[in-house]
Amino acid sequence: MIIAERKPVDEILGMVKNAERILVLGCRGCVTVCSAGGEREVEILASLIRLGMKKQGRDVEVIEGSLVRQCDKEYIDAIDQWQGRYDIIISTACGVGVNFIANQRPTDKVYPALNTSFLGGSPEQGVWTEQCAGCGNCILHLTGGLCPVARCAKSLLNGPCGGSVDGKCEINPQVECVWQLIHDRLGRLDNQDMMNEIMPIRDWSTAGHGGPRKVLRDDLTI
């Protein structure tokens, strides 16, 4: 899922500084699961905005709301229920949600409450780690299911780089060298020969280097 975390309160207060009526809008998708922008976090952020503004001697009206998702057109339309009651929207969705609101509501001011961090998972409660970079041309079948695009600091396709020490990446001893993990795992799976295969130079256009990407499914469009 998409992992995100709240921006510093100061930065958010800067966004709302000229507003009188603020809609803090949560998303019940990924950001609820990673505890960054669901209903509970909306409640907290609304409180922080009210407190921060009050400290500056300002009383603002903060409305709390949330949508099923902010990344689907039909759910964005539900913002109409607050029509006329807000000057700006502070979205606690990922960047997709903020873009979707901006795309669909030409005159609404919408600002991000979160820093959208990466595609990842939660190995233990309260911890999230990056696992995939959405490169658009998955090679996990060649790397034992472990992603070097997202998890190698240099996104090497023919690793390791030679800098790893005791299985840790040379950029930071806290980070595991994913190529060491790939090597060990392929060995365990009796696929160690795959380490000798040289991956050819790759076309990165599917990874966003060819401009914004789009998926079109004719069988689903109406």
């Binding site: 509970r40 409640e43 907290i44 409180s47 922080l48 009210r50 407190l51 009050k54």
Partner: peptide, 8 residues
């Protein structure tokens, strides 16, 4: 949020 509410 309940603790923040107390400050509010």
């Amino acid at each position: 949020s309940s603790l923040l509410k107390a400050f509010e």
